[in-house]
Design a protein around this nucleic acid. Sequence first.
DNA 1: GGAGGGTATGTTATCGATGACATGACGACA
DNA 2: TGTCGTCATGTCATCGATAACATACCCTCC
Lengths: 338, 338
Amino acid sequence: MNEDVARPRQPSMADVARVAGVSAQTVSRALRGSAHVNPDTGRRVLAAVEQVGYRFNSAARALSSGRSLTVGLVLLASGGYYSRSAVTAGVESAADDAGYAVSIATIASLDARRMERALARLADQGVDGLVIAVPLISVTRKMEDITRDIPTVTLDGSRTAGARVIGIDQREAGRIATQHLLDLGHRQIWHLSGPDEWLEARQRREGWQECLALAGIEAPPALEGDWSPGSGYRQGQIIAMIPEVTAVFVACDEMAFGLIRALRERGRAVPEDVSVVSVDDIALASYCTPPLTAVRQDFFGHGAAAVRLLLQDGVTVEPSAVEATLSVRASTAPPRPR
Amino acid sequence: MNEDVARPRQPSMADVARVAGVSAQTVSRALRGSAHVNPDTGRRVLAAVEQVGYRFNSAARALSSGRSLTVGLVLLASGGYYSRSAVTAGVESAADDAGYAVSIATIASLDARRMERALARLADQGVDGLVIAVPLISVTRKMEDITRDIPTVTLDGSRTAGARVIGIDQREAGRIATQHLLDLGHRQIWHLSGPDEWLEARQRREGWQECLALAGIEAPPALEGDWSPGSGYRQGQIIAMIPEVTAVFVACDEMAFGLIRALRERGRAVPEDVSVVSVDDIALASYCTPPLTAVRQDFFGHGAAAVRLLLQDGVTVEPSAVEATLSVRASTAPPRPR
DNA sequence: GGAGGGTATGTTATCGATGACATGACGACA
DNA sequence: TGTCGTCATGTCATCGATAACATACCCTCC
């Protein structure tokens, strides 16, 4: 009766079809650029879309096509702010380029229940793929049954059934950092690692150990932090009390900030008394005092590459293609001659 | 015929219903804890859910109920890493608590087309609400027609039709920082602001100006950065050349890092020659050299509060309830007596 | 004891897009 | 000229959950 009464409903394909004088199916075909649509018809459809202000309904599309055009991103609440943020940006950028949306789930470390819930939520949403940036060893296992059905790319190391992996070789990062210190003439090279649960923490530590072993040096015991600057500070207080230490390889920039602060407060100058090299090379690394020597990780690039790998299904891409490079700055120097 | 042939389909409510010996509708009611379900039936349904491994299909739910149980988060690619990451975590945490998923869209500053696309993507996804953390003045306008249909909460200042706003009073942040410097005895207090387009940059600058005016001091011209440490460094090189300056109020921590580095390189000690106070108080602020005096912003709390405000529809919550506090550290001191 | 009301459950239509299949028009080729 | 293939388009069933309506049962109260 009253055709023009306010109806808050969004226009649907049927509305477009009515205006364009075609069937809804033709609208669908035209909009997806499918074959077998007369160019004229296509233009009419596009005009009608414009006219009625049509927006496609992704729920309906997901339901009928079985694909949600969404990728899930799983992050860990702990760990560096910088890396999380950059990885997220990279994932989102690549996903956007491919017309995909990104749905995030952050999990609190170690809490298996929350983790399962987060993954389950993404699974419920029907994400077409998962990017997992949670390289916790304990976590990887538990994810397997959920991720089995969903194409998955894992960032930085952990290995899930059927998942593909992308990331820099963390062992290599450890080696590069350690070798730099060896080249400067250091022999007492300590290590402040990330939590042992993290695969990348282990791998960096292994790189450090291997490199020392190759140089015929026995590795001192590794100290362990939790990636936070505060933990770097606490471990730095310990290291400051060991006079032999002339160099420290720190597993991430944020801990390095804390460690350097502790060393300075205890009267040990960086780099004069102790050289510090770390991993990540965040934006602030160039601007602290002293500017930090660090192995660079391209988080944004990793995130983007992970999505490309994920969506490019079938196509084989060589994983872990990103290289680690060293940014040499002022926090490292030859040891003081004695 | 062959009932047990592999079918990769996820079990649906109908499958659950069959096993439980009830109708699909009853399953739906039982799962949503709806009234009028016999406790016994409820238990049977739950058991059947367990048995067949049922997971609800959010696309179908969204289609039929019109609600997607998803909130959209709009971020800006530029701006601090720390804040983005913390806001995201806060949003996601509160959303998760309420059973909502989070879909993100990052927009590149100033590019109206990308921005519209990002918002359109979220709208297409049928998000039930939007949290907008993009306080660009130029951007706010353009968002209005898209956000009109969707409940929206804006973080930090910008004001959209029908949107609610949450965040600390940025003017107040500027005042607190400036007053701290005045209290220490400074009179030549300069300001390095964020991009003029950002509402919060303007407001912090206005707070600084007002505070100086109240003290009977004419504000010097404000310098402008882009939030990055690099821009802080460049502007710091300029400030280092102006001997009168004894204090700088910097609009964010990351720029402060750059600025301090430039000052030190030019032989101006912090805080002996120049005091520096900034806004944000990121985790690294306590660990740089010197530790940074900063006005704290609780980004995580903001993000979480925004979501709560968004989902609590109908209920009136007083917006902008979060207070700014000053963390006094070693980057500020009384001016050198002359 | 029949009307009225609440509870537990089933049936049917619907959301919006798409896949599968059907149809009509046109041209090519034997 | 009749058959066949291709193109352009339409029709119908379907995805899975839910809203709206319908039904069957039991209880209470006048």
